[in-house]
Amino acid sequence: MSSATDGSTGGPPPQQGPVIELRAVSKSFGEVRSLINVDFALYPGEIVGLLGDNGAGKSTLIKTIMGYHAPDPGGQILFRGEPVSDWSVAKARSLGIETVYQERALCELQPIWRNMFMGRERRTRWGALDVSGMRREAARLMSEQMGFTSTAVHPDNTVQTMSGGEKQGVAITRALYFEAQVVILDEPTMGLSLSETRKTLNFIRSIKDRGRSAIFIDHNVFHVYPVVDRIVVLDRGRVTADVVKGDLTVEDLIHGLQDVARTGEWSQRA
């Protein structure tokens, strides 16, 4: 594993076009305008930190990328330069976009293995559900990824029997399993212990070593800053800043966010 822990600032390689791009995307829920005319791009091999106050529209943005929310008319989503049609979560996932949602998206009464493969169930050659294969795979992931003492792990346990951090572990492990080209993490460290948080941050950093990209949402700038290449700040549905990390220190970032909270404007310093 090549270490990316030195905080190097190798900004995005813009030779290639973006993997995902949003153009003039708005999203309203009745009167509430959660996204207003958002332009956003994610390049291959790049990690973008998405910051903003509670209710700024971060989760709405990534759910729109995932196809869970349809953008208001006029907005456009592009995948590898092509405008998408019939965008849906199933389609986004089949094209290699996986998400750890803020709300975890687990089905608590179901066994762990069903949760791991939710929406992307494996099938046998004959087309039947590969139950034993999924069970085995879930057991392996739980011992190798989540660090449950091996042989010990049981994929038949229901999710409701797990602790909060363990549940989050299931959601994270699930997002990694499918070797996604784009990994979106919405507050993935929520409820995690220090060592689990460190593990998760290391993982996010490692994503780009393989030319894959990530969007990372977290309220803790000390989690975000060391990991990302670029920072996008949302404020009440609008993008107020889009800066390459190399251009600012962590203090700049904190001051910038405070300015946004106070005035709604990002005053660039450097």
Binding site: M1, G147, T149, A152, S206
Partner: peptide
């Protein structure tokens, strides 16, 4: 296998320095 080897390696390393997690051994 379709798993992120890096994460895997880190997971193993973590298990070494940390103490083992809650034991979900008992199969229901």
């Amino acid at each position: 296998m379709s798993i992120d080897e890096t994460f895997l390696a880190q997971g193993a390393a973590e298990a070494d320095d940390g103490h083992p997690k809650a034991d979900h051994s008992r199969a229901p």
